[in-house]
Simulated assay, not measured.
Amino acid sequence: MTDLDQLKTDALTRIENAPDAAALEALRIEFLGKQGSISGLMKTLGGMSPEERQVQGPLLNGLRTETADAIAARKEVLENTELEARLAGESIDLTLPAPEVPRGSVHPVSQVMDEIAEIFADLGFAVATGPEIEDDWHNFTALNMSETHPARAEMDTFYFPDRDAEDHRMLLRTHTSPVQIRTMKAASANGGEPVRIIAPGRVYRSDSDATHTPMFHQVEGLAIDRDIHLGHLKWTLETFFKALFERDDIVLRLRPSYFPFTEPSVEFDVGYSNEGGRRVVGGHGDAEGHDWMELGGSGMVNPRVLEFAGFDPNEWQGFAFGLGIDRLTMLKYGMNDLRAFFDGDGRWLSHYGFSPFDQPTLSGGVGARA
């Protein structure tokens, strides 16, 4: 038997009997590594004559190929044996909880919108919606806003170049008040009936800085009946804030103001204090360490608005109010920068977002405080 035959027999026998992956890797290095015996023989081909190389070359290449194939085959056998042993020894504990999987979160604004809807549902208000692309009649005229009102200016409102069939200018709604008009028109078309709705949603204004964004969120409320007065408005707002902020010491202050769609008009403030650099709603604004913070506008629905919507102002009256949902979210959950709401930063969302399967609920809170 030649030296190559002996080397081949020795290599294949030892590879076949390799007990584990570590031993097999050691054999691979011994035979095929840079300093391996077969690799050393391959290096001698360069010093041979063409005639010798023609004879020895195929033999050495064949030896190297057979050795490499044997190593690969033995490696597959060892891996399969190891896998079978592991499967035989392992068992699945079906009583263990499933592993946590990545999942999305509810944006804080969406969470607060749900909380607002829940609170007002307990107070007998339905949620009403309307188009975000509006006409200027529903957005301005029907709300008693004159043709020269500053809010109609191009610099404040996103207008479209086209008009509707009645020659009204089309725009992105600047508030959710058009939903109130559409709801009242539908109610008056049915012969007149009480209305109690809130209208949450996106609104748009041409304004952008550290505290304003071109798109933001509002919720407006409307109650129409035959015996509504400002006392009902104040009670409704106080009850709402107590439930939203989960505090019984909410103090509401009404200040005379002016809005074209309400008469009389009032702005409402709540008492708050600064605690650790955070504004905390609660307490009396005139008490030591407290102050007042304006949160929205409201008032009794202007008789002209009732007429535009088809209600007889001599028979019907009601109140309306408006709030910024983004600001309420910042106050309730301790956020300082409005722009982060719209950045889409996954880190911010994972910190402030809510689990879609474990959202906080306010059910029962309104009834307890009412």
Rank of each mutant, 00 (worst) to 15 (best):
D269C: 14
D156W: 09
F308C: 07
K332P: 10
A243Y: 04
W292A: 09
T141R: 04
L59M: 07
A68E: 14
V109Y: 03
F125P: 10
E166C: 00
K75C: 00
T67Y: 02
P256Q: 01
V101R: 14
M293K: 06
H217L: 06
W235I: 10
A98S: 14
L171K: 13
L87H: 04
E263K: 03
P99L: 10
V280F: 08
W235M: 13
P108I: 09
R173V: 11
S39A: 12
G46F: 01
R86G: 00
G47T: 06
M145P: 14
D3A: 11
R339K: 15
L87V: 10
G36Q: 02
G283C: 10
L328T: 06
F261P: 14
V109P: 09
T67R: 01
E52M: 14
L41W: 00
A73P: 00
I198M: 12
E16G: 08
H168E: 05
S355P: 08
L27V: 01
T239G: 15
L171N: 08
L60M: 05
Q317N: 15
S39L: 00
I15R: 00
A165N: 11
D164A: 08
P313F: 06
K332A: 11
L60G: 08
A70C: 02
R169Y: 06
W316V: 12
D225G: 15
S110L: 09
R347A: 07
D227P: 03
T141M: 01
L41D: 02
P97W: 00
K234M: 10
F354I: 09
T183R: 09
H107F: 07
G296P: 03
I325C: 06
F261C: 13
M293C: 09
P214G: 13
Y159I: 11
N144R: 08
I197S: 07
A370M: 15
H232I: 03
T141S: 15
E132T: 14
H232A: 13
S298N: 03
D10H: 05
R304K: 15
L295N: 04
E154F: 14
G324L: 04
K242Y: 08
G104N: 04
S298D: 01
I181Q: 10
R205F: 09
